[in-house]
Design a protein around this nucleic acid. Structure first.
Length: 449
RNA sequence: UCCUGAGUAGCUCAGCUGGUUAGAGCAUCUGACUGUUAAUCAGAGGGUCCGCGGUUCAAGUCCGUGCUCAGGAGCCA
């Protein structure tokens, strides 16, 4: 693309420019000095180039400027590109001239270690560090892979509203806001119900946007605001739904492996664990999973009178972190668990025709303690049954009239799922905490920056 | 919301059964150095020991309380 805007040579261009004189712009990532020699690691975008300023090669003024530079000061530097085995990246700039744009004072993030709390308070600056760069680049690749996957498979992007009149699933706590004279509105926790309407209009659709959960969660895998992609497909049954989920995840990992080798090196990510992520993944039913838990003596722990009481895992309970992690320890690839008890799943999921106690629901759990990365189901498509479920869950019928219309006018079997982008980024990058996987995380005690 | 832990220099932390002027490394500033990449060496500055109240001759240390943060549970993607 030919740009009408200013275009500068950047660090990435250096290998092509050996022997030439270039002017680079950027920030000081690190600086070390040794008398008449100053070494500046110049940061621009995602690359770092070493610039060497030798006193005898530049004016006294330029050398004084080089000495005055501090971490994260901005500058332009002009010099010859030379190959050097000692320079990170293999090339360095032998500086001939140097101009300071701005001197940074007391930059708070040093090369030394910092605590979690300190770093997240300085998220706006933390993003400048190499590790965070790498995670953000992988995130961008993952998001592009998701869009490419759907766009190339006949899906249409259909955005869902963020302001909604009610809870989609009736369970999670919602963020509340005023909506003119119509009373309260809530920030969406899922675009799914709207995606169903879109799927009836366009066949195969996906929504991709931020969703909000006002749960008072305090864990390394929860955010109050996160990005979710939700495909919804007319005429798909649960098996189609699970196949699609596998195809998507396999494709995401494949793209990341193809485009993010440098990033994985920075992150010291074990690539071999990702190279194993090939279809078919594992697939077991909820009932099979419960049997496994019972056979392997993985208990359920309940609080009774403030004390932890262990008992064998009973059929009918939802899995907690303990059960999920125990199950996943046997797998080196994602595993889909399907056909959960209807009682622990959402009202809009279709019951299993073979067993009314079961929902045609599925969750995909990732390996390496990634946890739940996908949740989905075949949807209830019968008008009367859906109406009954809405009443059972004590939801306001008036809010769901339009949703019931989808079952009234040419209802068809359909399915979909939601994939949590940050959960996937966390798994693929090996980030310790989900707060590192989004530029500006929103968490229960954190809204700045 | 519940359980557990933490709060001492800009950052990361040490500081014993209460005791005299509260320490280290890094960062910052000054000086030396032509190959650094966590540079090295010499020197300097830097503290409301989270707030409030209490016990005591004496509190960073003990007690009470409040605030802030972290990890986990539940909920979920």
């Amino acid at each position: 693309m030919k740009s009408r805007y200013k275009s500068y040579k950047t660090v990435e261009d250096l290998p092509k420019l050996a022997g030439e004189t270039v002017t680079l712009r950027g920030w000081v990532y690190k600086k070390t000095g040794k008398g008449k020699l100053q070494f500046i690691q110049l940061r621009y975008g995602t690359g770092i180039a070493q610039c060497v300023v030798f006193k005898n090669n530049v004016t006294e003024e330029a050398f004084a400027k080089a000495k005055a530079l501090t971490q994260e000061s901005s500058l332009t530097v002009t010099g010859k590109v030379v190959a050097s085995g000692k320079a990170p990246g293999g090339y360095e700039i032998d500086a001939a001239g140097l101009e300071i744009i701005h001197i940074s004072q007391d930059y708070p993030i040093s090369a030394k270690e910092h605590g979690d709390s300190f770093l997240i308070e300085h998220r706006h600056l933390w993003l400048r560090s190499a590790r965070q760069h790498a995670i953000m680049r992988v995130r961008a690749v993952i998001i592009k892979a998701i869009r490419d996957f759907f766009d190339a498979s006949g899906f249409k992007l259909m955005d869902s509203p963020i302001l909604t009149p009610n809870a989609c699933e009736g369970t999670s706590t919602l963020f509340e806001t005023k909506y003119f004279d119509l009373g309260k509105a809530y920030l969406s926790q899922s675009g799914q119900l709207y995606a169903e309407a879109s799927a009836m209009a366009l066949g195969k659709v996906y929504t991709f946007g931020p969703v909000f959960r006002a749960e008072r969660s305090k864990t390394r895998k929860h955010l109050t605001e996160f990005w979710m992609v939700e495909p919804e497909m007319a005429f798909f049954d649960l098996d189609d739904d699970m196949d699609l989920a596998e195809d998507l995840v396999e494709y995401i990992v494949e793209c990341a492996l193809r485009s993010c080798q440098k990033e994985f090196a920075v992150l010291q990510r074990d690539i071999s664990a990702l190279e194993r992520i090939k279809r078919p993944f594992y697939r077991i039913s909820y009932s099979e999973a419960v049997e496994w838990l019972q056979k392997n003596k993985v208990p359920i722990i309940r609080k009774i009178d403030g004390r932890d009481v262990e008992s064998p895992f009973p059929w009918g309970e939802d899995f907690g972190t303990v059960q999920e992690e125990a199950l996943m320890e046997q797998f080196d690839k994602p595993c889909i668990i399907h056909r959960y008890p209807a009682a622990v799943k959402a009202f809009y999921m279709k019951r299993d025709p073979a067993d009314d106690k079961l929902s045609l629901a599925m969750d995909m759990l990732g390996p390496e303690k990634a946890g739940e990365i996908i949740g989905g189901s075949q949807r209830e498509d019968d008008y009367d049954t859906m109406l009954e479920r809405i009443k059972e869950d004590k939801l306001d019928e008036a809010d769901f009239k339009w949703f019931l219309d989808l079952r009234k006018y040419g209802s068809v079997p359909h399915s979909g799922f939601g994939l949590g982008v940050e959960r996937v980024v966390k798994w693929i990058t090996g980030a310790k905490h989900i707060r590192e996987t989004i530029p500006m995380p929103r968490m229960i005690h954190r809204i700045i920056p």
